[in-house]
Each structure stands twice: as structure tokens, then as C-alpha cells.
Design a protein around this nucleic acid. Structure first.
Length: 457
RNA sequence: GGAGAGGUGACCGAGUGGUCGAAGGUGCAUGAUUGGAAAUCAUGUGUGCGGGCAACCGUACCGAGGGUUCGAAUCCCUCCCUCUCCGCCA
């Protein structure tokens, strides 16, 4: 099932970075240009074109590094000479030498400046290039090509026309989209009574399942983060328009914070810049958070109901592991997300993203799609992804394979476990009854204190 | 928000212009000693980049960014963060 990279992966291991291919660092790209181009072409021709110029820049950089370091070496040697002169107290000799060294020093500075500019240009280019698909990912042009891997649970049959969740929710008096719009505009929601309680129950239920049965450590992260954190996960620089940005006084504040689009961002960056010992892996975190998305470019889609909101709740599961464990960890994590649906008794299916449907940072992804009777369709409720070392490189998250060994980039994974708003609406739709009530899933009854939602009188 | 003190290697901590990638200690690793362990002694112990088959060599990094200087962990500027006291506050 898992084709392990392409043949050239083993031909010649790259010197400075991890051996796998899910990486876009300048050295790897310039040494395996055709191969990386072919991999990106599986996503789209446009993505492959993003590589243009990278190899040349990398080569230029190497030359400049060598030139500059040679100058630095000369300068350092000369400075040692000056130290000796200073000791001898020969002021005139020092003065003369100083003139000469000034020139050398200026040259060093020019080199250093040119080098840092070039490196900035390279990293700007690389930051805009998406991850390469894993060899096992099927080719495809749109999400319609995504293969269905399995269908789980029984799609409910109704002897009446099933209502949409917003109709059910409003009739029960637990959902009020009109008043939400009064407060905050379109794509916000307002829950009352059992509706609000259901939202809270789902968050608690999911966190309990992941922490007690799946071995995750619960994390409560900040809901606002720096641009740096978003760069680590791959949301920036390319997807700024999808985010809500906050500022204090100055709209152009360099240190402006962003509202998180998912807990993936703060939780993945928990270990940014760190070196983790091998015996600490895998690390597994589960976090509840609200998520904020501007939904730019989605006008006209899912305008009704709770499917697509500017603010929604989600429990996110995140894993850090050694590279060789990546594939197995993706299966494991996906299973954990699926368990939530199974425990709730919701009918769903699992699809795999084809190459063209992969998100920017992902090397392989599965979506869990829940059945929505009102739409007679499966809709995404969780996306489970393996990022290879793509995020780890951007956020500099490494581990030490051997106690004294060289650090290597680790692999990151995450998945929704699950999107709470969509779970909420799926429960209303799948468990709706002819009389307008909604059966509460067994697993939630203790939290909800009832087995049935009925209109508040 | 006001006043003050600080940010140095895994940790503690010295270092106010050249001999500092950085004393000393702790921790850790290896070896010696021991029946075994403790204690003791010796040696070693950061990361990135460039070169090299390698041993290794070079270079950069002492919160971040800029400046002064032939030369900056050390001097100057800006910013960030932490701590203490005061004020305010869920």
C-alpha cells in the first residue's frame, strides 16, 4: 500500500537534511530539481512552475557563502594581528593597519548584506511552494476524483421529508441565525438552551475520548497567534485573506496578532524551534478551540445554516512523530477521529484527497464526511493530514534519533476530531424525528441529561 | 499604565572592547576504581551553514534587529520578553 518514495531517494542521501522526500529545502530542490518538479506537477502545472529559479538562487547563494566566509576568515586573522599589535603598543603601526583593514571590513559587510538579501529572497520563494504529494496519493484533478475508501454506519431512512438542521434547530428554539446576524452579520450563529449545551457536551465528549482512550494530552492554547506561528503551519504567507487579523491602534502593526483558523496553528507550534529526544515521540495533543475564518472566496457557498461560519468550535488532534512512523501515524490519527463519529452513531464515509485536492501543507490527507439527509450528500466533518517534514521545517521542529546523534526534522500530523458545529448539525439532521424532536446519541445522554430534544414550551 | 531589575550553552552562573563558542558548577555520556552501587578521578558533551569520502577545517550564532569600531557577548539605539513594586482589572 505504501510505495516508499521514489528510487532516487536511496541513490544518494542528501548531506544535511533528512532522507525522505517530503521536503522543500533549497539544497534538496537544487540537487533533485527534476524529481521535485515532477512531484509538484502531480498537484498542478502551476505548482511545478513555482520551482523556476530556485536552483539558480541556491547555486548563487552557495558561491556567495564561500566568498563571504573567505573574507571573514581574512578579517578575523587580521584582527588577531591587531590584537598582538595593540599589546606591543606600536600606535603608528596600528594606525596604518587600521586603514587597510577598513577596506577589508567594508567588503565583508557588503558580502554579508548581499547574502542575507539573497537568503531572504530564497526563503520567500520556498515559503510559497506547496508540499509534494506522497507517492501513495492517487492522481486526480478535482475533489470529484477523490476515491471513497470506506463507508461506515447506516444512512438513516425517513418516512417523511427530512428537514435541514436550521429548520430543526429554529423550531426547537435552540438555534437563532437571524439574531446572530443582528449581532455580527452573516455566518455567525447563536445557540440557546439545549443547543448551547449540546455544543459544550460535544467538546467535552470529544476531549474525554481522545485523552482517556486515545492517549492524547489535553492542551488549551492561545486563540490569537503571531504571524510566525502561521508561517510554521503553512497558513502564511499565502493565505492571509482567509484569516482575521487584529491590531491595536495601528493597522500596519508588524506584530499584529491573528485569530487562529484552527488549533492546529498554536498546538503544532508548541514545539517550534525545539529539539525533542526520540523517546518522547510520538507526542499527541488534543485541543479544543474556537476557529475563526474569513471564508474569503466562498461567497454563495453554504450560505444557509451552520456549515460554513466565521466562527466555529473544533477539537483538534495533533501528533509529532519520527519520519518512518508517518504513514502509520496517519492511519492511527484518522482512526481516532473516526471513533468520535462511531461513538455518536453518525453515518459517514472516508475519502482520500487526490493530488490536486491536497491542501498547501499536506503530503497525504483523508477526509471524513458525514451524511446530511437534507442535502442527501456526505459533507466534510474532519480532515486528517500528514505533513511530512513540511511544517517541521518551517517551524524548525526537530528530534534526536540517537542519544548523541544529529537532530533531524520530525513529522507532524493533525486532524479534526471533530468540527463541533458540523457534528452538532449532523446530529440534528440524522437523528431528527417525524414529530420535530431529535434523539440524543447514547454517548451524550449523560452530559445532556436527556435522551431527546423537544421544543421548549 | 507608572517605577526599577534582568535576558549568556540542557540547567545555574562568570564574563564591560581583541587571547571568548565563551570560566566555574550542575546534569548527561564514556572510561578508571568497586563483588555491585554510591562517592571519587579522567575525558567528552550546542546548533545552522559552506567545504571534505572521512578525520576534520572554515564561518555564523551570548533575547531580536540596527549602529559605532580594524575588531562587539562586552559600547550606543530600537523592539520583544521575564521578574519585583505600585495602579487598574475578569
Amino acid at each position: 500500500m505504501w510505495a516508499s518514495g521514489s528510487a532516487s531517494a536511496t541513490d544518494r542521501p542528501p548531506r544535511s537534511f533528512s532522507e525522505n522526500l517530503h521536503m522543500l529545502d533549497a539544497r534538496h530542490v537544487s540537487e533533485h530539481l527534476d524529481e521535485v518538479r515532477a512531484q509538484l506537477a502531480r498537484r498542478s502545472p502551476d505548482d511545478a512552475a513555482l520551482l523556476d529559479g530556485v536552483a539558480e538562487l541556491a547555486k548563487k547563494r552557495r558561491e556567495l557563502v564561500q566568498k563571504t566566509e573567505k573574507l571573514q576568515m581574512e578579517r578575523n586573522a587580521a584582527s588577531d594581528g591587531m590584537a598582538a599589535l595593540a599589546k606591543s603598543g606600536d600606535r603608528e603601526a596600528m594606525q596604518a593597519r587600521r586603514e587597510e583593514l577598513k577596506k577589508l571590513s567594508d567588503e565583508v559587510k557588503r558580502g554579508e548584506t548581499a547574502l542575507s538579501e539573497l537568503e531572504a529572497a530564497i526563503s520567500e520563494k520556498l515559503l510559497g511552494i506547496p508540499n509534494v504529494p506522497h507517492a501513495s496519493v492517487p492522481d486526480g484533478k478535482t475533489d470529484a476524483d477523490n476515491p471513497v475508501l470506506r463507508v461506515v454506519g447506516e444512512v438513516p431512512k425517513f418516512d417523511f421529508k427530512p428537514k435541514a438542521h436550521w429548520e430543526i434547530g429554529e423550531a426547537l428554539g435552540i438555534l437563532d441565525l437571524d439574531r446572530a446576524a443582528k449581532l455580527s452579520g452573516a455566518r455567525f450563529s447563536l445557540l440557546f438552551g439545549a443547543g448551547a449545551r449540546l455544543e459544550r457536551a460535544l467538546a467535552t465528549f470529544m476531549l474525554d475520548l481522545h485523552t482517556r482512550e486515545h492517549g492524547y494530552t489535553e492542551v488549551y492554547p492561545p486563540f490569537m497567534v503571531k504571524a510566525e506561528a502561521l508561517r510554521g503551519t503553512g497558513n502564511l504567507p499565502k493565505f492571509e485573506a482567509d484569516l482575521f487579523k487584529t491590531y491595536r491602534g495601528d493597522p500596519n502593526d508588524k506584530d499584529a496578532l491573528y485569530l487562529i483558523p484552527t488549533a492546529e496553528v498554536p498546538v503544532t507550534n508548541v514545539h517550534a524551534g525545539e529539539i525533542i529526544e526520540a523517546d518522547e515521540l510520538p507526542i499527541a495533543y488534543a485541543a479544543y478551540s474556537p476557529c475563526f475564518r474569513s471564508e474569503a472566496g466562498s461567497y454563495g457557498r453554504d450560505v444557509r445554516g451552520l456549515i460554513r461560519q466565521h466562527q466555529f468550535d473544533k477539537v483538534e488532534i495533533v501528533r509529532f512523530c519520527a519520519p518512518e512512523d508517518g504513514p502509520a501515524q496517519l492511519e492511527l490519527l484518522t482512526g481516532h477521529a473516526e471513533n468520535v463519529l462511531k461513538r455518536l452513531g453518525l453515518a459517514y464515509r472516508v475519502v482520500e484527497h487526490v493530488t490536486a485536492d491536497l491542501t498547501f501543507s499536506s503530503t497525504k490527507s483523508y477526509d471524513l464526511e458525514v451524511w446530511l439527509p437534507s442535502q442527501e450528500a456526505y459533507r466534510e466533518i474532519s480532515s486528517c493530514s500528514w505533513f511530512g517534514d513540511f511544517q517541521a521545517r518551517r517551524a524548525q521542529i526537530r528530534y534526536r534519533p540517537e542519544p548523541k546523534g544529529k537532530p533531524r526534522l520530525l513529522h507532524t500530523l493533525n486532524g479534526s476530531g471533530l468540527a463541533i458545529g458540523r457534528t452538532w448539525l449532523a446530529i440534528l439532521e440524522q437523528f431528527q424525528q417525524k414529530d420535530g424532536s431529535v434523539l440524543v446519541p447514547e454517548a451524550l445522554r449523560a452530559f445532556m441529561g436527556t435522551e431527546r430534544l423537544v421544543p421548549a414550551k
